[in-house]
Simulated scan of single mutants.
Amino acid sequence: MKKISKLLIGTNNKGKYREIKDLLPKYIKTYSTSKFKLKSPTEDGLTFTENSIIKSKHFSKKTKLICLADDSGLEIDILDKSPGIYSARWGGKKGNFKKAINRVYRELSKKDKNWKHKKIKARFICALSICYLDKKIASVLGKVEGHISEKPKGKNGFGYDPIFVPKNKRKTFGEMSSSHKYKIDHRFIAFKKIKKFL
């Protein structure tokens, strides 16, 4: 397979776009979906992997470019792995993550009033898929284990970053510098696996 020199990053999330662009080899010219004014497809897969393939194929067919798409989210064990593939939807139509984070805390309090005194196990998962038109080139999964912080901390990152503390760390992703976070997060772990296809 010849080296990929042009790649569409299949996301309308600016934070994700930036992180993926920063992780890609510099020789790859990247395009964003917003440049093409593309709407995201209906994500009706049942797993992160299925949804990342749906997005990747959709954006690739629309632009005729090879597309790398990510589907990622937060799984919280005592919430039966919710919000999971619905992580973005918990923020409502506008993808408001303050709202999503409040919902996580509400659901946790319903499950266990004393949750703040316990380590609530959670993980971030990232599925990355590269597709060209209807053909899947690669699909990988990255995970990072951790727990939920008792209150949101830090202004960096995006999404649920302010409430996730990775294993063996004291700070949330929201408190870490992006260069630090990028070296340990779920997207980086998935990237290490997908690099050989780039």
Results as ranks from 00 to 15, higher is better:
Asn13Ser: 09
Lys14Gln: 13
Lys16Val: 11
Lys16His: 10
Lys16Gly: 07
Tyr17Met: 05
Tyr17Gln: 14
Arg18Met: 05
Glu19His: 04
Ile20His: 09
Ile20Gly: 09
Lys21Met: 07
Asp22Lys: 10
Leu24Lys: 10
Pro25Asp: 08
Pro25Ser: 00
Tyr27Lys: 12
Tyr27His: 12
Tyr27Met: 02
Tyr27Gly: 00
Lys29Pro: 00
Thr30Glu: 10
Tyr31Gln: 10
Tyr31Thr: 12
Ser34Cys: 14
Phe36Lys: 12
Leu38Trp: 13
Lys39His: 04
Pro41Asp: 11
Thr42Cys: 06
Glu43Ala: 14
Asp44Asn: 14
Leu46Val: 08
Phe48Pro: 05
Thr49Arg: 06
Asn51Asp: 01
Lys55Gly: 03
His58Trp: 07
His58Leu: 04
Phe59His: 09
Lys61Gln: 13
Lys62Val: 00
Thr63Cys: 13
Lys64Gln: 13
Leu65Tyr: 12
Leu65Glu: 08
Ile66Arg: 09
Leu68Ser: 14
Leu68Pro: 07
Ala69Met: 13
Ala69Asn: 10
Asp71Glu: 08
Gly73Met: 02
Glu75Asn: 09
Ile76Arg: 00
Asp77Trp: 13
Asp77Glu: 04
Ser82Gln: 15
Pro83Gln: 09
Pro83Leu: 01
Gly84Cys: 13
Ile85Gly: 07
Tyr86Ala: 03
Tyr86Met: 10
Ser87Leu: 06
Arg89His: 02
Trp90Tyr: 09
Gly91Thr: 06
Gly91His: 07
Gly92Cys: 08
Lys94Gln: 06
Asn96Tyr: 10
Lys98Val: 00
Lys99Phe: 01
Ala100Cys: 02
Asn102Val: 07
Val104Gln: 02
Tyr105Trp: 03
Arg106Trp: 11
Glu107Phe: 00
Leu108Asp: 12
Leu108Pro: 02
Leu108Ser: 07
Lys110Ile: 15
Lys111Cys: 07
Lys111Asn: 07
Lys111Asp: 02
Asp112Ser: 15
Lys116His: 09
His117Tyr: 14
Lys118Thr: 01
Lys119Ile: 08
Ala122Glu: 01
Ala122Asn: 06
Phe124Ile: 05
Phe124Gln: 11
Ile125Arg: 14
Cys126Pro: 02
Cys126Gly: 01
Ala127Met: 12
Ala127Tyr: 04
Ala127Val: 05
Leu128Ala: 04
Leu128Asn: 08
Leu128Ser: 11
Ser129Trp: 03
Ile130Trp: 12
Cys131His: 12
Tyr132Gly: 10
Asp134Asn: 15
Lys135Asp: 05
Lys135Ile: 11
Lys136Gln: 15
Lys136Met: 12
Lys136Arg: 13
Ala138Val: 03
Ala138Asn: 10
Ser139Met: 07
Ser139Thr: 15
Ser139Cys: 15
